[in-house]
Design a protein around this nucleic acid. Structure first.
Lengths: 109, 109
DNA sequence: TGAACATATGAACAAACATTCATACGTTGA
DNA sequence: TCAACGTATGAATGTTTGTTCATATGTTCA
């Protein structure tokens, strides 16, 4: 780059959020970037479900679902309730629906 | 799974969006799941910028930025205006800011 | 108590992805 | 026209990540 961009570069940098914030933002959206996790969350929109019930609903292996639920749990998007042998998962945040709506809105354009 | 979940599985499946929709949704969020792309979009919030200007703002290689801009272009999140040697990129959609806001809201909890 | 079941998790594997390097293409101005 | 510059892109590379397999943990019930 030869021409003088110093002013623009500087003011652009100043206008941007903190580095940390932008990395966190990417990490947050990363959770929604996998179709299995999306499908799990969609399944949980109506009611809480056990792990094997989710697995059967999605026609996927129990292990796969458990691994993905772990990620959703870590990110505080779902919560667990244990009852006997089963673990019942539900959405931790009503917020999630809004985020879905927003994505759907963009897709339908 | 031994106990009878057929009813729940069936009604859950019925309540869920189309498969295609859920895959598209994941693909949409995938675009936001990378910190470089997030940073590029943040840089473009204020004004259109040339490729080399973005690269310098983020202290990253021009090639890296070009590759990521290609993805953002493919997903219709940025648009290009060519002027002489330079390509000026800008956000294609005011929508994007809303999506960012929503993510930031969740992070700050 | 032991067998059947539900869930969680580590290791291995394959696929997806971001970055870098090298280079090609197009534009400008001397 | 040729050199310098800005941008785009294919190939190579290393890393991340989702899925599978095997298995461990914990619970229920006969």
């Amino acid at each position: 780059m030869t021409h003088d961009h110093d002013t623009i570069v500087k003011s652009t940098r100043d206008s941007m959020p903190n580095m940390d914030t932008m990395f966190e933002l990417a990490d947050f959206f990363k959770v929604f970037s996998d179709s299995t996790r999306i499908r799990i969350m969609c399944a949980l929109f109506e009611q809480e479900l056990s792990v094997c019930c989710i697995a059967e609903t999605l026609s996927m292996e129990q292990s796969t679902i458990s691994h993905q639920l772990r990620i959703l749990r870590r990110e505080n998007l779902v919560k667990v309730r244990k009852d006997g042998k089963q673990s019942y998962y539900s959405l931790a945040d009503e917020h999630i629906k809004q985020i879905f709506e927003m994505g759907l809105e963009h897709i339908s354009e």
